[in-house]
Nucleic acid binder design. Sequence first.
DNA 1: TCGTTATTGTTCATTTACGCACATGTAGCT
DNA 2: AGCTACATGTGCGTAAATGAACAATAACGA
Lengths: 292, 292
Amino acid sequence: MDNWDEIRTAFQVARLGTVSGAAEALGVHHATVIRHIDALEGRLGAKLFQRHARGYTATEAGQDLLAVAGQTDDQFTQLASRIKGRGDEVTGELIVTSLGALSPLLVPTIADFQERHPDLRVRLISDARLFRLEYGEAHVAIRAGKLPDQPDNIVQPFFTQTLKLVASKGYVARFGPLSGDNVGEHRFVGSTDETPRAPYFRWLNETVPTSSIYFRASSMVAVKEAVLAGVGIGFVASWDQDRTDDLVEMLPPLEDWTAKIWLVTHMDLHRTAKVQTFVRHLKEQVASWPVD
Amino acid sequence: MDNWDEIRTAFQVARLGTVSGAAEALGVHHATVIRHIDALEGRLGAKLFQRHARGYTATEAGQDLLAVAGQTDDQFTQLASRIKGRGDEVTGELIVTSLGALSPLLVPTIADFQERHPDLRVRLISDARLFRLEYGEAHVAIRAGKLPDQPDNIVQPFFTQTLKLVASKGYVARFGPLSGDNVGEHRFVGSTDETPRAPYFRWLNETVPTSSIYFRASSMVAVKEAVLAGVGIGFVASWDQDRTDDLVEMLPPLEDWTAKIWLVTHMDLHRTAKVQTFVRHLKEQVASWPVD
DNA sequence: TCGTTATTGTTCATTTACGCACATGTAGCT
DNA sequence: AGCTACATGTGCGTAAATGAACAATAACGA
């Protein structure tokens, strides 16, 4: 049963009773309708209609087709309106992938968004591996660093995160302050990555001898916990430092210690209302984030 | 949502995940598949798939289409097998139109046929007006006289009915026998039709003065009843005369008093198993009819 | 790291399907 | 009877959809 268009043509003929009427309804020439019917009947090896001067009368097979194709027509019409409508409404599932460290900022914002759109189910995923927007793994990604130029991705600046080199009060009480010439006497918390992309970790690698890095973690959450535990001196986002009064700044901030955070969407989904609305909401809410 | 073929193409892409796979499944070139998808998405104003090097991933809209078109595909497949299969089985409805007078012979034969095919519903219709096979009003028609040459009708001889000019015993006791020269003294039963097509009624019109026809009826059933009631002399089928011993033959049979009975089917339905089986059954059973 | 394979995407020639015009036939109405 | 309106059916030229070939890119494995 290949060629669904011929079924659709036969459906209109069965429904209207004439080739001419079906042709008008379908917006094609009546010769085309006749050809479709002939081809379909030939392929099925059965007559769908009895032909006469007043029109086409459906046989039992034709009436069967009428019933089946009628349902199909309804379902396709509903499908089309669903698809057309879905682009304008914020429902279904929204998949956001983000740096795990941003969760404390992101989750309340998402919760607020969900408050405004109760029908929206949200999945917030954070993982070591990169989720690929072009495979449909997520609708919106929040990423750091300048991304490899994925041509189908739409990248826009979200905010700039300032990091501070901090340590716990307990650490300072034990090891003292940090200055330009006593680096070797201090303990640091760094990244597990040998060649980190983040500029502050690269600054750490260049400035601090490997032997002074006593703790390595793969996530910024773990880094912060290590610093809080007094393991050593490490980088913590400025907004994250503000959430506790146990962390003291060990050096004045440098230019390199800023991380641009990007908002990434896939081209195909970017203009949908769901993504658009969420992105707009993120940009509005970021103004109230303590990130500058 | 016009162009169901594009939906079918999109369905295969959503199902298989790649354009190439869909193209192979559909038996078309992959360029065609891409064009269908692009056209469909353009018309819907929404993306059905996210394109990447590994294939096409269905968006929510594409998954919706996959579900709907999957059902459609199943239904169409079932429809096709039903239509193909239906031609080979004797089920559903069989509509037979016949001369009302033949019912006593026809009904037992149809009942026997129905015994062999229990799933068959039968409608036997007899009416003054002609039921038209080309409008699907009946599958099989049993008709008398040579029909106007309907090109789409398949006409085959069924049997030849011999009529006899008879009267009731009561009539004979009262009016005496009929001979060539006492026609004017007798009473006759004729047709309501001014110019009857049946040759025996035309013989009656030519031989008997109009004033001698005391009873006119439109159906042969009524004619027979009138004759039985002693109203006059009339034509009754020979097999019908045999069913009672109250009717006596008034004149020896003439050549003109035979009526050819035809079996008529429509071209489009003639080769279906239902019609074929029924026609074969009729021809087998007519041998046991008392019509010669 | 470099082929290999399996994808998508684009251009151009060709086939196929379409629309047009005309013929034909039927039903209904004056 | 004849006229009108509406239906199916058919041949032909054209436009649109298709297929083939090629390009490009990404994932995979040795």
